[in-house]
C-alpha cells in the first residue's frame, strides 16, 4: 500500500488508526488500509440533497427570456452564432445613421442637413419602415438570423425535452421565445428609433412645445415599428417551428418577405393591378405605418384598413402554425 507514496492523499486516517485503532494487531496491515482511497483518487461520489424551494412561473419565464437575451452579449447563455452577433452590431450602428447625422447637423448648425436627416414625419416613418436600406438589408435579415434556430434547434438538439419536462407550459415556451426574439429586434429597431428622437431634442435643443407637437408622431412610428417586429417575428417563428434546421426558417422568411413584394410589384407593373400588395407583409406594414404616422400613402385607392386586415390574417395564420407545431413537439422522442 502506498503509505509512503508522496502522491497519496493526506487524510490523517492512517495515523489515527495507529494511535486509536481498535485493531487487535493480528490483522494484515493491508486489510486495514484497504478502505483508503487509491493513490491520487480524489473523486468521492456523494449524493447531496437539496432542500431549497422553487420559484413560481414568472421566474421560469424570466429564465427563458434571460437565456436568449443575454446570449447576445455574454457566454453561458444561448450561444448565438458569431456572424449573427456581428451582424446585429453592424445593423445597430447602421440604424443610428440618422441619429448621428442629426447630431452632426446640430453641431454644424446646418439647416439643410437637418432637413434631410432630422426628426420629421417622413424620417420617423422611414426609420422603421423605409424600404431601402432598412427593410431590405437590415431588419428582415436580423429577424432571419434570430428566428433561424430559436425553435427549430430545440427540435434538432432535442432541447425541447429540457423545457417540457419542466413545469413550463407550451404557451409560456412559445410566448417567451417570441418575446425574446422580438426584444432583441426592439433593442435595435426601436432602440435606435428612440435614440434618433432624443438626439434631435439634444442636438437642436428642442423644448416641451416641440415635444408635445411631435410626440404623437413619435408614438405612431413606435407602434408601426412594434407592428413590424411582431409581424416579422411571428412569420419567422412559424417558419422555425416547421423546421429542424437554422437555414430554412431564415431563408424562408426572406423569400416570403421579398418574394411576395417582388410578385406584387411585377403584377402591378405588367397588369396595373396593385391589389396583390395585400400578399406582401412589408407593403401592408408600410401602408398601415404611413396611415399611422400620417405620411403620403403608397396605395391611395385602397383603405389602409385592408392592409391591417391582411396583416391580422397573416399574423393569425403564422401564430396558428406556430402554436400547433409547438403543441406537437415531443418530450420523449423528437
Amino acid at each position: 500500500m502506498a503509505r509512503d507514496d508522496a502522491r497519496a492523499p493526506v487524510t490523517g486516517k492512517t495515523r489515527l488508526q495507529a494511535a486509536w485503532g481498535s485493531n487487535t494487531g493480528d490483522e494484515v496491515e493491508d486489510i486495514g488500509m484497504a478502505a483508503l482511497p487509491k493513490t491520487g483518487e480524489i473523486f468521492n461520489q456523494d449524493y447531496k440533497p437539496w432542500t431549497g424551494t422553487l420559484n413560481p412561473r414568472w421566474m421560469r419565464n424570466w429564465a427563458i427570456l434571460r437565456h436568449h437575451l443575454f446570449g447576445v452579449f455574454r457566454k453561458g447563455y444561448r450561444p448565438w452564432g458569431m456572424p449573427t452577433r456581428i451582424f446585429l452590431v453592424i445593423v445597430f450602428i447602421a440604424s443610428l445613421t440618422d441619429a448621428a447625422l442629426t447630431l452632426l447637423s446640430g453641431i454644424l448648425g446646418s439647416p439643410e442637413l437637418h432637413q434631410l436627416w432630422g426628426v420629421n414625419r417622413n424620417n420617423l416613418y422611414g426609420h422603421n419602415l423605409g424600404f431601402f436600406p432598412r427593410n431590405i438589408l437590415y431588419y428582415p435579415i436580423v429577424t432571419a438570423l434570430l428566428v433561424g434556430g430559436v425553435i427549430s434547434e430545440d427540435r434538432h438538439h432535442g432541447t425541447s425535452a429540457l423545457y417540457f419536462s419542466r413545469p413550463i407550459s407550451r404557451f409560456d415556451y412559445t410566448a417567451m421565445k417570441f418575446i425574446s426574439v422580438a426584444l432583441i429586434q426592439s433593442l435595435i429597431i426601436l432602440g435606435s428609433y428612440i435614440l434618433f428622437y432624443f438626439s434631435e431634442i439634444i442636438a437642436m435643443g428642442r423644448g416641451w412645445a416641440w415635444i408635445v407637437d411631435t410626440f404623437p408622431i413619435f408614438v405612431a412610428g413606435l407602434i408601426a415599428g412594434i407592428l413590424l417586429i411582431f409581424t416579422y417575428t411571428s412569420l419567422g417563428l412559424a417558419m422555425s417551428s416547421i423546421s429542424r434546421g437554422r437555414f430554412f426558417p431564415g431563408i424562408g422568411l426572406l423569400a416570403f418577405l421579398f418574394g411576395s413584394k417582388t410578385i406584387a410589384a411585377i403584377i402591378s407593373g405588367l397588369f396595373e393591378r396593385d391589389i396583390l400588395y395585400l400578399l406582401s407583409p412589408y407593403d401592408c406594414l408600410a401602408h398601415v405605418g404611413q396611415a399611422l404616422v400620417g405620411t403620403q400613402l403608397s396605395y391611395t385607392q385602397y383603405s389602409w384598413t385592408w392592409s391591417l386586415v391582411s396583416l391580422v390574417l397573416m399574423n393569425g395564420a403564422a401564430l396558428y402554425v406556430l402554436a400547433s407545431r409547438v403543441s406537437s413537439m415531443e418530450v420523449t422522442r423528437e
Partner: peptide
C-alpha cells in the same frame, strides 16, 4: 439553465 427552468434562483 435546466435548474433555472424549474424556477431556481
Amino acid at each position: 439553465y435546466s435548474g433555472e427552468l424549474l424556477g431556481m434562483n
